[in-house]
Design a protein around this nucleic acid. Structure first.
Lengths: 225, 225
DNA sequence: ATGATACTCGAACGCCTGTTCTGTGTCAAG
DNA sequence: CTTGACACAGAACAGGCGTTCGAGTATCAT
């Protein structure tokens, strides 16, 4: 019978090292040395750090240039340098609920699809880890100035402040929509981004599920056919 | 009287080093060492390389982490890693002509403003050097599904193929617009991106200046207020 | 001529860093 | 109990690397 010491492929130590490399890289613009990793991860021997680094490389979390000082770099879905990698969780369309990230394994594997965004493009200081993206399908978001094929990036949240652009699921109407959100006396006002279009009002008795706050829209203009 | 040996800030040697660092980084994913620079740039002494590196740092072309092996990185408008830096040349609005890049000093200094785009987001294999960006002002591009404040990235071109989304200047109408372009029998059809809106037709006798082909639209959703 | 400035070379110094080797303790399987 | 895989520590080694220094050469203004 085969039993694994630590059931997960990634132990606490591994994760700690990975996190440290990422944060160090963000701060210093270059990867840490083995010894620096040791100090900050409470590992007293360089050989042990090397030991873990080897494993991380085997698992594909890391790339190494042996013999080269600080010759390591994070791979895949790790926020590298000044770029965010945002997972595309699915599509958003009129009649369907919005896929939202499972709370548990968030940083985990989403090798599906993802988009990379330069941090310099990020509006606020949104932490990249919490963001996710959806691909718009159909032309139902036209009043939000969002086209078929556009990619919207949003931050998961349940409540919005007035003026936020939110993705909401109106289960009563079986409708998904993107609107600017305003809470008024006894109802909600959902204002389209297109100023030529009129807002819709949702009574507070109606169900209104805010799924996330839209932080960015990206449109790759291909070809109109 | 003060005379400069080489009138330009950047000598041939400087440029060669800069180029080598860029190409080395692309290939190895990490910067070269001083000695490696020396070998590939025909400099026999490490101190000379260090000498030039210091100058490049003073000129702002380079950042250095002294004492740290390979602790250098290119700054500014150098296509680093897998990211494009696209210069924002100005704004685009209804009644104004579209700013287009001067043909001469393109790669030159545009320290104004710029946006960074991950190459993975680029639709075609557009070369980043030829792209430029404009910030949309006003709501005149609404029929192109482009909002006030959006950033559009386009490739300068004079002619378009059917189905391309182009930025055109209609001098007869004194109007700037973004539309899908179609050449028909004796006229041009400019099709709005918003499918609920009707196309406009431009007679071939009218002037129609294509300024560029839109390749991407980016919207940072801030706050509606 | 003379001195200043820019540029180049070569060598030596010493720290930093990845590697490797030996040894220790733990724990599950046989 | 023995064995062996696994996690870890510590020390020592060797090479890579940035730095520094002394010295030489060329150009140019004074």
């Amino acid at each position: 019978m085969m039993m694994v010491r630590k059931s997960k492929g990634l132990g606490e130590r591994h994760q700690k090292i990975l996190d440290f490399i990422a944060s160090y890289q963000r701060e210093h613009k270059h990867p840490p040395s083995i010894r620096e990793i040791g100090v900050h991860c409470d590992i007293s021997s360089t050989s042990v750090v090397n030991y873990y680094l080897d494993q991380l490389e085997k698992n594909g979390h890391l790339e190494r240039d042996r013999k080269i000082s600080r010759g390591m770099r994070l791979t895949g879905n790790t926020p590298l340098g000044d770029m965010f990698r945002v997972p595309v969780l699915g599509v958003i369309q009129a009649g369907e609920p919005i896929p939202v990230p499972a709370n548990d394994s968030f940083g985990a594997f989403t090798p599906d699809d993802s988009v990379e965004i330069a941090t310099s493009l990020m509006p606020s200081r949104e932490k990249g880890k919490e963001l996710f993206a959806l691909q718009v399908q159909g032309e139902s978001m036209i009043d939000a100035m969002v086209n078929d094929g556009d990619i919207i990036i949003l931050k998961p949240t349940q409540d919005a402040r007035n003026g936020d652009m939110v993705a909401v699921w109106l289960s009563d109407r079986n409708e998904t929509t993107l609107k600017f959100f305003f809470k008024e006396k006894d109802k909600y006002r959902l204002q389209p981004a297109n100023p030529t279009m009129k807002p819709i009002y949702i009574d507070k008795s109606e169900s209104l599920e805010i799924k996330g706050k839209v932080v960015m829209v990206i449109r790759k203009v291909e070809r109109y056919n």
